[in-house]
């Protein structure tokens, strides 16, 4: 049997007739879900500041609490549903980062604490950490060079 299309023509054609992502709907949902998560963070921060806590300490504690919230919601099988609806709105806040670490840890627990949880925990978050650290080192070096010259 001969194909009537070249590979490129075929790929183009299938993409053209494929069911499309609802971009506007996804953007709006990401905005709402991300907004809700950030509002929760802001409420926590404001409450902490009200107790008379220093701003820096309150900010750190808020991040910690949000990480706990993300990890907790992952643990009780809720965050994957938030992620399915919210997309980037659920992935980019620190709760999403917690989800990306806790979900593989849960999944690979059955393969032991060393080669399972330990080795696979950063399956998804690994690249974020690697390139985040590389970027911060680069930024640090640049900062050092420019501040010395001044």
């Amino acid at each position: 049997m001969k194909q009537k299309r070249t590979k490129n023509e075929y790929v183009e054609w299938t993409q053209k007739i494929a069911p499309k992502t609802h971009k506007l709907k996804n953007i709006i949902l990401a905005f709402i879900v991300g907004g809700i998560i950030c509002t929760i963070g802001q409420v926590i921060l404001s409450l902490l500041l009200k107790t008379g806590m220093l701003k820096e300490d309150a900010a750190s504690l808020t991040t910690l609490l949000m990480i706990f919230l993300g990890a907790f919601l992952t643990g009780i099988n809720v965050y994957d549903n938030i992620g399915r609806i919210g997309g980037a709105g659920a992935a980019i806040p620190v709760t999403g980062f917690a989800n990306s670490i806790v979900s593989p840890a849960m999944e690979y627990k059955k393969e032991g604490y060393v080669m399972g949880v330990g080795a696979k925990m950063f399956l998804i978050a690994g690249p974020v950490l690697v390139y985040g650290i590389v970027a911060s080192i680069a930024a640090g070096i640049l900062y050092y060079i420019f501040t010395i010259n001044i």
Binding site: K20, T21, G75, N77, Y79, D80, S103, E107
Partner: peptide, 13 residues
């Protein structure tokens, strides 16, 4: 794909 509890979106295909 991803771990079960990871909050990713499924493309329509």
């Amino acid at each position: 794909r991803f771990p079960l509890e990871f909050g990713s979106q499924r493309p329509p295909t």
